[in-house]
């Protein structure tokens, strides 16, 4: 009899403990009820790495993304997967003697590439430097661009340098970022696990992480999209400048170049000796930022 009472008491105690534990656990995970599950589709989960996709897989992925964009932004995007062009390696040259630090490139880039507006993600950082020094430690990142150019300063825009020996690609644990045949370093936003090792490896502060869910007003969405470049991203993945692949692989110029009011930006094919960029490399005084890092940038600075 006594034994049974003890048993019952133990049983009661155990069930109470179990129930209390379950309740506490349920309370702990309760924030998950606000979790946006739209990004956790089976299709997305099973999607292969970009380089392993067959043409059918790719078409399927593109269609899935088109649908998602349409649902979210009420715009049917012109989403493509433009391949690199044979015999082309893109290069960029920026004339420090001309740049006035107006930051129009920064904003044109955001408009073109569907970055989050809240919080705003910018690929280009313009440094205001005192004349007589290119020591970035002395730069001002937050100068007022309504009062430019300041006669005592010069301006150095920095964006992804599309390195030929990219440290960010080397460190990625899942090959979610790589260098394409035309020299552009791209990110597969559907493959990135968000460890941010590439951001730690980049010597140019070129990589941006989606710490929060990106917010783009519907009317601001650029419907001209490419898989490896400006399609909308989700929170938790890395992104960066990709030389406007959706434009440049279709024969157009990057948005930052088109908007530049002083013609400080030059873009073209390094493999074509007659291109603007090749001519600049041959005839001007050029330098690359942080040459000692050994990253072999495809982004050059020059003076007139």
């Amino acid at each position: 009899m006594t034994e049974r009472t003890v048993d019952r008491r133990n049983f009661l105690r155990a069930s109470l403990g179990a129930a209390g534990g379950m309740a506490a656990f349920a309370a702990a995970v309760s924030p998950l009820k606000d979790f946006d599950t739209s990004d956790l589709t089976l299709e997305g989960f099973l999607q292969k790495h970009y380089k392993e996709m067959t043409p059918e897989d790719k078409e399927q992925a593109l269609e899935r993304i088109r649908k998602e964009v349409e649902e979210r932004y009420a715009v049917r995007p012109e989403l493509r997967d433009l391949p690199p062009i044979d015999g082309v390696e893109f290069g960029y040259a920026l004339n420090l003697g001309r740049c006035i630090g107006c930051r129009r490139c920064v904003h044109a880039c955001v408009e073109e590439n569907n970055q989050s507006r809240d919080p705003e993600i910018q690929y280009i950082r313009v440094l205001e430097l005192p004349r007589g020094s290119i020591d970035v430690e002395r730069s001002d990142h937050h100068y007022d661009d309504r009062e430019v150019p300041n006669p005592d300063s010069f301006y150095m825009p920095v964006q992804c340098h599309q390195c030929a020996n990219p440290p960010c690609v080397k460190v990625c644990p899942v090959e979610a970022t790589w260098r394409e045949a035309d020299g552009v370093v791209v990110v597969d936003y559907d493959w990135c696990i968000g460890c941010r090792y590439c951001a730690a490896a980049c010597p140019y502060f070129a990589r941006r992480f989606n710490y929060a869910e990106p917010e783009i007003p519907k009317e601001r969405l650029n419907p001209n999209m490419n898989y490896l470049s400006n399609r909308p991203r989700k929170k938790g993945v890395m992104e960066k400048c990709h030389f406007c692949l959706q434009r440049t692989r279709a024969g157009r110029m990057p948005a930052c170049l088109e908007v530049c009011p002083v013609g400080a930006r030059q873009f073209g094919n390094l493999l074509d000796p007659e291109s603007n960029v090749s001519q600049i490399l041959k005839t001007k005084q050029i330098f690359v930022l942080k040459q000692e890092a050994g990253t072999l940038p495809r982004f050059f600075y020059y003076f007139d």
């Binding site: 956790l40 989960f45 899942v174 990135c192 696990i193 929170k235 993945v237």
Partner: peptide, 13 residues
């Protein structure tokens, strides 16, 4: 990790 749901990618690639 920003995308812990993709840990499988560590095995796949």
């Amino acid at each position: 990790l920003g995308r812990p749901d993709r840990f499988m990618h560590l095995f796949l690639r």
